[in-house]
C-alpha cells in the first residue's frame, strides 16, 4: 500500500510538470485557436538560459529574470512567425509552430551544445507517512497550483483576460469593438512563453534538458491539454494529473520504458472519446 501511495504522490508531482507545459498550450489555443507545438521549446530555452546564468556565478533569482526576458523576446518572435498573416489558417499555424521549434534547434546547439544540461534545484526530501518526495517536486506542485489558480483568475476576473477570451470566441466582433485580435495573440504567446520558461527552470533539476527535449515535454503537455479540449485550464490540469499518475504507476509496476507509450495510448483514447462525443452531440 505504501508503495502505491508513493507512486501516486510521485505521479501527481510528475503530472504537475505536464500541467505546467500544458498551461502554455491552453493559453495560446484559448486566445488564438492555434495549437502551438513549439511550446516545449520555450521550456527548453528557459531552462538552458537559466543554467547558463547560474553557471556564470549569478544567483538563481537573476537567472529566472534573464530567462523570462529571453522568453518574452522569443514569445514575440514566435507569435509573429506562427500566427503569420491575417489569412493564415490555424492548421497552417500549427505546422509552422512545429517548424519554428525545429528552427531553434540550430542556435541552441551552437550555444549549449547537444548534450543534456542540468540545473541545481532544491536539495533534500520530504517524508510523510512513508511517502517521500524531493523538495524540488514540492516546489513544482506549489508553483503549478499557483499558475493554474492565476490563469483561472486572470481569465475570469481581469478585463484583459476577458478581452483575450473574446478574441478567440469571436474575432470579428472583438475587432469591431476595437480589440486588436493579433495584438491579443502576441500577448498570449508572450505569457505562454513565460509559463514555458518557468516550467523549464523547475523541471531541469529533475530532468536535464538538451536542445531536443521539447518533444517529450510537448507530447505530455499536449496530451494533458487535450483533456481540456485545449482551452479549459482546469480540465487540462486534471488530465495532467491522470497522465502523471498513469505513467508513475506504469514505471513502478511495469517498466519506465512503457511511460511514453502509456501517454500516447491515453492521448489517442481521449481524442477518440472527444470526437465520438462531438459526433453524438452534432
Amino acid at each position: 500500500m505504501t508503495e502505491f501511495v508513493q507512486y501516486l504522490a510521485t505521479g501527481l508531482a510528475l503530472g504537475c510538470t505536464f500541467a505546467l507545459v500544458a498551461s502554455g498550450i491552453v493559453f495560446i489555443a484559448r486566445v488564438t485557436g492555434i495549437v502551438n507545438f513549439s511550446q516545449g521549446i520555450f521550456s527548453v530555452l528557459g531552462g538552458l538560459t537559466a543554467a547558463s546564468v547560474v553557471g556564470a556565478g549569478l544567483p538563481m533569482a537573476v537567472a529566472v529574470i534573464v530567462a523570462l526576458i529571453v522568453s518574452v523576446v522569443v514569445g514575440v518572435i514566435a507569435a509573429i512567425v506562427i500566427m503569420g498573416r491575417r489569412s493564415t489558417g490555424h492548421d497552417s499555424s500549427m505546422i509552422i509552430s512545429l517548424g519554428f521549434g525545429i528552427l531553434l534547434y540550430a542556435p541552441m546547439v551552437m550555444i549549449w551544445g547537444d548534450q543534456p544540461v542540468s540545473l541545481r534545484g532544491l536539495s533534500g526530501t520530504f517524508s510523510l507517512g512513508g511517502v517521500t518526495l524531493s523538495y524540488q517536486y514540492l516546489l513544482i506542485i506549489g508553483v503549478t497550483l499557483l499558475v493554474f489558480a492565476g490563469i483561472a483568475l486572470f481569465f475570469s476576473k481581469t478585463y484583459l483576460g476577458k478581452a483575450l477570451t473574446a478574441s478567440a470566441s469571436n474575432p470579428e466582433s472583438a475587432e469591431v469593438l476595437g480589440i486588436k485580435v493579433r495584438r491579443m495573440g502576441v500577448i498570449a504567446f508572450v505569457i505562454a512563453s513565460m509559463l514555458g520558461a518557468v516550467a523549464g527552470i523547475l523541471l531541469m533539476p529533475i530532468q536535464p534538458m538538451a536542445f531536443n527535449s521539447d518533444v517529450s515535454l510537448v507530447l505530455n503537455g499536449f496530451a494533458a491539454a487535450v483533456f481540456g479540449q485545449l482551452t479549459r485550464p482546469g480540465r487540462a490540469f486534471a488530465g495532467a494529473m491522470i497522465l502523471g499518475v498513469a505513467q508513475s504507476l506504469t514505471a513502478g509496476y511495469l517498466s519506465a520504458a512503457y511511460q511514453l507509450p502509456v501517454a500516447l495510448v491515453i492521448l489517442i483514447l481521449v481524442l477518440v472519446w472527444q470526437s465520438r462525443r462531438k459526433v453524438l452531440v452534432a
Binding site: Y159, K162, A163, T165, A166, S169, N170, E172, S173, A174, V176, L177, G178, I179
Partner: peptide, 29 residues
C-alpha cells in the same frame, strides 16, 4: 458603435462581460 449581423455576441460570456467589452476604447466600463 456597431451592431453586427446575427448579433455576434461572446456567447460563452455573461451579458455584463459582453457589455463591459463594448467599452474597450472607453475609460468608463
Amino acid at each position: 458603435g456597431v451592431v453586427l449581423e446575427g448579433r455576434q455576441l461572446f456567447n460563452d460570456m455573461t451579458v455584463e462581460d459582453n457589455l463591459r467589452l463594448g467599452a474597450w476604447r472607453s475609460r468608463n466600463r
